[in-house]
């Protein structure tokens, strides 16, 4: 319980504020990927590749590939941004920069560092998602997309929650990879398959029991489908509830494991 309460501690938010301060100093270069990546993806895949893909039937409505892709990019952005921050950036701060060691000589404890990293990763994921939303708005105004905007603001807390959960997953690997080179293993064996086999970039629909089970327990799938239904049809679906449940479950399970493993790695505790 002490770990969960640490989320509200001033120390956790001081750690987040530190990361925000550093990020904002480099905003002019740091803001390029979240702005240009969705534009490029939407143009290349949505408009370019999509022009060769006929409109198809999705949940009883006819959609273009561009319209299908746009909400998927939103979910994928939160997922990758939060995960990457908690994996690579946090690892660099922990291992190379020794930022954590410095923080731990103050009133900040390891649970605050963990929460600070998770909250920061989620905040950045949310900020990038908002940028993607603005890009989608631009496509909407340009006539390429016709999205329902009612209720989109209400998904922002869900996107933040998703960011915390994916950051908790990232911190798990931060705690266990022996060196930075070993991050290729979780990235290519876990993250890339998870990212794509989730109805983000293409519909994964199969009657096979295994595929059904995978989609049922895959939180990114529920996030992508829930946001897609909201943006394309204005429908609040069961997927959003499942996403909330699975993200809360991930946080509840992963963060204590992260803390235990990081205690061993950072503090040398048993």
């Amino acid at each position: 319980m002490r770990l969960y309460l640490a989320m509200t501690a001033w120390q956790s938010w001081a750690v987040l504020r530190r990361h925000l301060t550093v990020y904002l100093r480099n905003w002019h270069t740091a803001a390029l990927p979240p702005i240009f990546e969705p534009i490029i993806l939407l143009l290349v895949f949505g408009v370019g590749l999509g022009s060769n893909i006929p409109d198809f039937d999705w949940k009883s409505q006819n959609v273009s590939y561009l319209a299908y892709l746009a909400p998927g990019i939103l979910a994928y952005t939160v997922f990758m941004t939060a995960f990457f921050q908690a994996l690579f950036a946090a690892y660099i701060r922990m291992h190379y920069q020794k930022t954590w060691d410095g923080q731990l000589t103050t009133q900040v404890r390891l649970e605050h560092v963990v929460w600070g990293e998770a909250l920061w990763s989620a905040s950045l994921g949310l900020a990038y998602a908002v940028i993607v939303l603005f890009v989608l708005l631009g496509f909407n105004l340009g006539g390429w997309l016709d999205l329902h905007w009612t209720g989109v603001i209400a998904t922002l807390p869900l996107l933040f929650l998703a960011g915390v959960a994916f950051a908790a997953l990232g911190l798990l690997f931060t705690a266990i990879v022996p060196t930075i080179d070993h991050m290729n293993i979780p990235f290519y064996l876990v993250i890339m398959p998870l990212g794509f086999a989730s109805n983000t970039y293409f519909p994964l629909e199969s009657d096979a029991l295994l595929a059904q089970a995978w989609l049922m327990i895959n939180p990114l799938h529920h996030l992508a489908e829930g946001v897609r239904l909201l943006l394309l049809s204005g429908v609040w679906s069961f997927h959003l509830i499942m996403a909330v449940f699975l993200f809360l479950l991930m946080i509840a399970i992963l963060l204590p494991v992260d803390l235990r493993l990081l205690r061993r790695r950072v503090l040398g505790e048993n």
């Binding site: 001081a14 100093r25 920069q97 930022t99 410095g102």
Partner: peptide, 23 residues
């Protein structure tokens, strides 16, 4: 500490200033 653990993202002055945020 034995090893240098200052914040390499900040200047010397900001290292001192920022440390104050952790108390």
């Amino acid at each position: 500490t034995q090893d240098d653990t200052f914040d390499t993202d900040f200047t010397v002055r900001d290292n001192l200033l920022w440390f104050g945020h952790y108390f």
